[in-house]
Design a protein around this nucleic acid. Structure first.
Lengths: 188, 188
DNA sequence: TTACAGGTACCGAACGATCGGTAAAGTCAA
DNA sequence: TTGACTTTACCGATCGTTCGGTACCTGTAA
């Protein structure tokens, strides 16, 4: 690398930060440039197809994150309790305890909705399958495991919205704790 | 009539439609004008403070809707089962079975987040209090009633996101049915 | 009936600012 | 000196907003 003053990973991270807090439409090139410490033209050098390519790059990073921090963890050979603990801790970090928006939600509305829909659906599906697999390792039946994975994912999204709207910073962590118990408890 | 007046209610409805599907930043004046069948200058005649005032007007309508279709229903003198049924049917209509976004969520992100936060929080609170009240009428304790109201609200938001992202049109209605049973069933 | 006044609703045209995007010159390591 | 990378300067389009003005309704007085 000859001249890379700003590392690629840092750029992606700052782009994600801007997209997730402003949304696709709200994240202007000027804002993305300021966040990454690059001039607009430099951003276009790295992402010739512009804003859309930047969002794709961010989604690629998120997909990779989901594979390494969720899928790989939940499909590993460790004890189910440990796998769950590790994955939920990663989720708590990802959203900074519920203080940060979900990038998938941010990119799935407004003018970018159709563009990224398939990519976003795939990530959600990876996520759901991984938690379903874990639930079955805990001894839940397939249908129950499906429900649990769905419930966790839905509650993450819903809680993020409600916590931010109501300004109650403890909702997210409490919800994660409750879902943790729900995964570990076999009901019948 | 050469200048057919466009009814205020219709304008509000079309504004809401545009804001909820495009978000605040994504809803351009051009789009709002096209949706309402009014020219941009005419919109400014009705809403002199511009886009922000339009969003406030929409939120005012939503607050009114929540009072008449949720609060008034859930605090009425009818049987709890009937109140619940009526309110959930209204919610199902509001979101067209999960096909439409939530206007509160649409306005609580991006550049409009801070502007409307208090107004949005108040509407959520009305909603939560009404369902808590109903849950207690079903015989749930206060803490349990709070949890149920929270769970319903969170699941509505989360399910809307997941249903749209995954393209599974039945999730929302199923979720409403499950929550209906959960309200009616006293666990201890 | 006519005539004019005031008010309401609407619209074409344009404003400065910002949008996403580009060309070409400058910078620096190999 | 090449070539990857950054920068300055700029583009047309669109942004939210404003202005000047037209069309129509209602009320009042001749």
């Amino acid at each position: 690398m000859a001249h890379a003053k700003v590392e690629h990973d840092v750029v992606i991270d700052k782009l994600m930060e801007t997209f997730r807090s402003s949304g696709y439409d709200g994240a202007s090139m000027a804002a993305l440039a300021e966040a990454t410490q690059l001039k607009k033209a430099s951003l276009y050098h790295r992402f010739p197809q512009g804003k859309e390519q930047m969002a794709h790059a961010v989604l690629g990073y998120v997909a990779e994150w989901a594979k390494s921090r969720i899928e790989n963890v939940l499909f590993s050979a460790n004890a189910p309790e440990e796998r769950l603990e590790t994955a939920l801790k990663a989720i708590d970090e990802l959203y900074d305890g519920g203080r940060l928006d979900c990038i998938l939600r941010a990119l799935s509305h407004g003018s970018s909705a159709n563009t990224f829909q398939k990519e976003i659906a795939a990530i959600f599906q990876t996520w759901l399958n991984a938690f379903k697999h874990l639930a079955m390792d805990f001894g839940h039946g397939e249908e129950e495991a499906n429900k649990l994975a769905n419930e966790l994912t839905i509650k993450i999204q819903g809680t993020l919205i409600l916590q931010r709207s109501l300004g109650q910073p403890s909702m997210f962590k409490e919800m994660l704790r409750e879902m943790q118990e729900k995964f570990m408890h076999i009901s019948h």
